[in-house]
């Protein structure tokens, strides 16, 4: 119960910061991507509450905001884990077996792509090309890139984050 209250207070504080951040984008339809990126930086993800604020500030429809968020894999609709794993499914990684790496990650973490582990430690996402095709297949954990992967290398990498 207490943690829930604390969580609410934390979120309130973050939403306040989002309001402040949006001040500079008032009425600027073209600032959608920057605004969303900054909002996600503050809150960690983009819940409906945040989307409404962005829509109202930029004077665009909520539908446009949601459409944009779901188009880009970078944006999250749900809270993410402490360590965010992104598996590149761009063409080069894909042809070099990124799918198998993703399958193994799902198996090891016990979650499906797009989800977060129950202990909020890892979240797993697929993404488009990360620009490291020479290292294909690659994954990124937070800001760390891991390349030339095979499914068998997955448990070892995850161990680093235990």
């Amino acid at each position: 119960m207490e943690t829930a209250v604390k969580k609410d207070a934390e979120l309130e504080e973050k939403l306040q910061k989002v309001d402040e951040m949006l001040e500079k984008y008032k009425g600027q339809k073209g600032a959608l991507l920057q605004a969303l990126q900054e909002a996600q930086g503050i809150v960690g993800y983009l819940p409906l509450e945040v989307q409404k604020k962005v829509a109202a500030a930029l004077n665009i429809t909520l539908s446009e905001v949601y459409s944009t968020i779901t188009f880009y894999s970078f944006f999250n609709l749900k809270p993410r884990g402490k360590y965010q794993i992104r598996v590149c499914l761009g063409t080069a990684c894909y042809v070099r077996g990124a799918n198998k790496v993703l399958d193994r990650l799902e198996k090891e973490l016990g979650v499906k792509v797009g989800d977060t582990t129950d202990d909020a430690k890892f979240s797993l996402d697929a993404c488009r090309c990360v620009g490291a095709c020479g290292l294909a297949p690659t994954i990124i954990i937070n800001d760390e890139v891991y390349g030339r992967l095979t499914p068998d290398k997955v448990p070892e990498i995850l161990k680093k984050y235990e």
């Binding site: 539908s63 446009e64 949601y66 459409s67 779901t70 188009f71």
Partner: peptide, 9 residues
């Protein structure tokens, strides 16, 4: 009105 859009990708 704008309540429908292409969602996802």
């Amino acid at each position: 009105v704008g309540v429908i859009s292409p969602n996802h990708r």
